[in-house]
């Protein structure tokens, strides 16, 4: 406790980490060689490290639960925090490439767990390049929801291959999602919104949710309200472009 008192990065009133001490560049090069540890395969993912309360390190077996939600490029983690209480029984993970931002989310989750005993134990964050290492984290069909909220737009055509939604990367997302699993994408950049929609529309393993289904889905509303980026867009009165698709069995 004393240590926390002294730590200037932690707010004294809310006991949450303060964002101004975790400033990072807005972008990170997804193409560069990664020098952070990556699990060799999904069975090497250390759940006791991510979810220490649910997977006590002492017990080797017991809990066979697997991560079901992945927030790709989770940023400061706003969506995860909202989802955590909405789906308390589901394990979820945020994946973020920028190390300082990941550090912030880590601290934020830890602080929330302390402030709300018994809550937020199902949420975790990891620093990784999800464009390269999704198969190292998730088995085939393991996920039921994937989120891509306000991804980097990469306007230049030569940089389109850096976009997190692209026709070939969708193959990998379709692999990680179980049949019926849902991909949520949203952006405030019209051009990117059209691109993501076109990619998903053109992929034989995804189909769009109907308007009724979108209306009934609790999570859809969170896309624009729960994230820091979404709140910023709303504050500035910006427009958002959403594409929500379901993983289906391809018809051959």
């Amino acid at each position: 406790m004393l240590k926390n008192e002294a730590n200037p990065n932690i707010s004294k009133t809310t006991r949450l980490p303060r964002k101004r001490f975790y400033r990072a560049r807005a972008h990170s090069n997804p193409l560069s060689d990664s020098h952070f540890p990556v699990p060799i395969s999904p069975s090497h993912v250390d759940y006791s490290l991510c979810y220490p309360q649910l997977f006590p390190p002492s017990k080797q077996v017991g809990n066979s639960k697997k991560i079901q939600f992945a927030d790709i490029g989770c940023g400061f983690g706003g969506l995860l925090i909202s989802l955590s209480t909405l789906f308390p029984e589901t394990l979820m993970i945020g994946m973020e490439l920028r190390d300082k931002v990941t550090e912030y989310v880590k601290e934020r989750i830890l602080a929330l767990r302390v402030a709300n005993p018994g809550q937020y134990n199902n949420v975790s964050v990891v620093r990784t390049n999800s464009m390269k290492y999704i198969p190292n984290y998730f088995e085939k069909g393991q996920l039921s929801k994937m989120f891509f909220l306000f991804p980097d737009p990469h306007f230049k055509e030569k940089n389109h291959r850096r976009r997190v939604i692209s026709p070939h990367l969708l193959d990998e997302y379709a692999y990680a999602l179980g049949v019926g699993g849902i991909m949520y994408t949203i952006t405030d950049v019209e051009e990117l919104g059209e691109w993501m929609k076109a990619c998903l529309e053109g992929h034989p393993m995804f189909e769009a949710l109907t308007d009724e289904e979108l209306e009934a889905d609790l999570v859809v509303k969170l896309l624009s309200t729960a994230t820091e980026e979404g709140q910023k867009v709303a504050r500035n009165g910006g427009q958002t472009f959403r594409a929500v698709y379901r993983r289906i069995v391809p018809t051959i």
């Binding site: 060799i40 999904p42 393993m205």
Partner: peptide, 25 residues
């Protein structure tokens, strides 16, 4: 470090979308 096994479709010119497995180790 990755090996990807993809279903080779009947009409490959339309793309090979379906990943059978990843061999990781």
């Amino acid at each position: 470090f990755k090996i990807r096994v993809t279903v080779f479709p009947k009409k490959p010119l339309d793309g090979a979308y379906e990943i059978q497995s990843f061999c990781l180790g």
